[in-house]
Design a protein around this nucleic acid. Structure first.
Length: 607
DNA sequence: GTAGGGTTAG
């Protein structure tokens, strides 16, 4: 948008022409009214800002270059303009140019807070630290804007939260932005507890809250799954009248989706007086995994409120389709993203890779992946998971190496992907090498999920004893997922000496997992220990739980048919059995004999 | 005339 001040100016046409030369920016003589800008320099700066607002950074630069005198305001406007267009490196170059060429101009607090934003955007803490030293040199550390920008830079750049904390401590008079920035820093780092610790301190110091602080605090409590804390904050929001703030309510909606439940979330959604596209996106994302049909239903209703789906909407919608694994629907949604010009958005392309892989079309995943102009760690991970699930573990591992070569820094989740790929391809030693490099090269601390992957990697290959030793050597207590992976390995390789131990650990840690009882009982049965078998089965019945049925589905022409093992319902079931029989014959032909031993013992609960 | 924090992706 063109600022009103400019449009009102008599020298400018109602629509700004591009590349308006500096020489045209003369002080107005015809309409010498008091509200008009006074000097060409001020006018030029105004125009520079407008150019950036319209994304015309080249025109901004041309005008800037034509200025005979550039003061600190013009320089700062350029630096901040570039960052506002996400051109952080250009902003940084501008700052360097300013220090080098404009010896008569001194950077001020505006310059520093803008260039710090550029450092944050480049994720380059070394530049940020350099600016930090200049901030001290120029004596502007006392500016609350500079202090907050420094904190934000450190909090966002890798491993900088401690530096952010020490800057925070040094700010004598902190304001709500300082607190919010620190809370956001912890939250984005995934340290919800750290964030809530700061939030609590803020409450103790009786700092006035505002919607910004409240929404990030809600996100922090959602990230640790604390519905108690989340509900407390919801009550506080209600008390302070923040429910009129859409971002605050969106955070609450997200918290309900993640920690409380979808039906409650839906009630929250219906209770909202005002909703925006993020509101809808949040709910669609909430439904995406557990009820993708409802997610699609919401998507089709969204335009009734005159809202336009954006890249986030499509990311969740595509993920929903991926979870439904209905290729034709996926192709339709893919078409919509093309029509709306969103197909090249990073997040959208990433979810398309995942969707095509989950719908069985790995070729399309590849095509999208290869045609992407820029890829991030999510793109690589999605492609690797796709390859892995299609049995191309070698390609997935290969991709990991290519990713590292291309300069993308691996994160924790990409290690989950590469370890899984190694595990399913039998690349055990290769996988162990990656696991080792995770800490030694990339300084990422392995968590329960990673240990689970490595236990699975060793266990699948029959190296059960090593898997057990790894669990023993873990720096923290293994949770039920790690023991679950171990149990799976013991079961697969019939290492009964460890089964009891593994199963009892899983049961201790998560008694609600009925699958564990089943696994344990199967092993007892296979060992002929019928007394133990009966005892476990009795426990299982006492729980009133059933093994969760794995649902399968198939798309034939325009219909989706779904079924579970042992299904006797539905008119299509007979055809399913026919197909299963054909599969059985094919498998026999290639010499596969099924492992009936453990199957038999599972038959009695109908799954 | 130049600067700030919040909600939705593997």
């Amino acid at each position: 948008m063109i600022s009103r001040k400019l449009v009102q100016h008599p020298l400018l046409p109602s629509k700004i022409r591009h590349s308006l030369p500096y020489s045209k920016l003369k002080s107005p003589t015809l309409f010498n009214t008091p509200f008009l800008p006074k000097s060409p320099s001020i006018l030029a700066t105004n125009l520079i800002k407008s150019y950036f607002e319209m994304g015309l950074f080249k025109d901004a630069r041309t005008l800037f270059d034509e200025m005979p005198q550039r003061d600190v305001v013009a320089w700062s406007a350029m630096i901040s303009g570039y960052t506002s267009c996400n051109l952080h490196a250009r902003a940084w170059i501008m700052f360097r140019e300013m220090l080098r060429d404009a010896t008569d101009v001194q950077p001020n607090e505006f310059t520093f807070s803008s260039v710090l934003k550029a450092c944050k955007g480049m994720n380059t803490v070394s530049c940020g630290a350099l600016v930090h030293s200049l901030v001290v040199k120029y004596g502007v550390l006392g500016s609350i804007y500079v202090g907050n920008a420094l904190m934000e830079m450190y909090a966002t750049c890798s491993d900088g939260i401690e530096n952010a904390c020490s800057v925070f401590e040094e700010i004598v008079v902190k304001n709500a932005v300082s607190w919010t920035t620190l809370i956001a820093g912890y939250t984005h780092l995934g340290d919800g507890k750290g964030a809530l610790r700061v939030f609590r301190q803020m409450l103790l110091e009786e700092v006035e809250l505002n919607p910004f602080t409240v929404s990030i605090a809600i996100r922090a409590s959602a990230s640790i799954g604390s519905h108690i804390y989340g509900k407390q904050i919801h009550a506080a929001v209600f008390k302070r009248g923040y429910e009129s703030s859409i971002p605050v309510m969106n955070s609450i909606l997200d918290m309900y989706c993640k920690c409380i439940g979808l039906s409650e979330a839906y009630r929250c959604f219906q209770g909202m007086v005002e909703r925006d596209i993020i509101t809808w996106n949040t709910l669609i994302a909430g439904y995406e995994k557990s009820d993708p049909y409802e997610a699609l239903n919401l998507y089709s209703n969204l335009e009734s409120e005159d809202l336009t789906p954006n890249r986030f909407t499509f990311t969740s919608v595509i993920a929903s389709v991926a979870n439904m694994a209905v290729l034709r629907l996926g192709e339709q949604v893919h078409g919509s993203t093309i029509k709306r010009g969103l197909v090249d958005e990073l997040g959208v392309a990433n979810s398309l890779i995942d969707m095509y892989a989950k719908c069985g079309n790995i070729t399309n995943s590849c095509k999208i992946f290869n045609e992407m102009e820029s890829k991030n760690v999510v793109s690589w991970t999605s492609m690797m998971i796709g390859y892995g699930s299609h049995g191309h573990g070698d390609e997935a591992v290969d991709l990991f190496n290519k990713m590292v070569t291309s300069g993308v820094k691996p994160d924790r989740i990409v290690f989950v992907a590469v370890l899984n790929a190694c595990s399913h391809t039998g690349l055990v030693d290769e996988g162990l090498k990656y696991f080792e490099s995770m800490t030694s090269v990339y300084k990422i601390k392995p968590d329960q999920e990673i240990y689970g992957c490595v236990v699975d990697l060793l266990g699948r290959a029959g190296r059960v004893k090593e898997a057990y030793e790894l669990i023993e050597a873990m720096p923290f207590m293994a949770d039920e997922s790690v023991w679950g992976a171990f149990l799976g390995a013991c079961k697969a390789h019939k290492v009964s000496e460890f089964v009891k131990l593994a199963a009892s650990r899983v049961l201790e840690l998560k008694p609600s997992v009925s699958g564990t009882y089943l696994a344990l009982s199967s092993i007892y049965a296979a060992d002929g220990k019928w007394g133990d078998f009966a005892r476990i089965r009795k426990l299982l019945r006492g729980m009133g739980s059933k093994k969760e049925a794995g649902r399968s589905w198939i798309e034939v022409r325009d219909r989706i048919y779904s079924f579970v093992a042992g299904d006797k319902l539905g008119s299509h079931i007979e055809s399913v059995y026919e197909v299963v029989d054909i599969f059985g014959l094919h498998m026999k032909e290639v010499g596969y004999s099924s492992d009936l031993e453990s199957l038999i013992h599972n038959l009695d609960d109908g799954t």
